[in-house]
Amino acid sequence: MANFAIDIWGEMCPIPLIKAKKKLLSMQCGDILVLETEHSCTSRGIVVWAKANRYIIKEEEVANGIWHLELTKTHD
């Protein structure tokens, strides 16, 4: 159960999600991907995508307008 992080800070939609998808391919089931963004659309987009893929997703606003996401890969 490893933790990974990719830097998506300041990237335009939907680049963060494309990068997250790519990273997830190299991860094992049970691994967690940590992301942070200041873009409401990006955060929402990742949550919607994760739910559609039946991954576990935790989203938390950690500062004014900054979202912290934890995506758990539950299946391949």
């Binding site: 800070w9 300041g10 990237e11 335009m12 200041e38 873009h39 606003e61 004014n64 307008g65």
Partner: peptide, 21 residues
Amino acid sequence: ATLVASQVRFRPIRDKKFFFS
């Protein structure tokens, strides 16, 4: 809408490629 949710912040451009695009 952003203010009501206390989500106001200035979001600068972080890579010059995005300035041009």
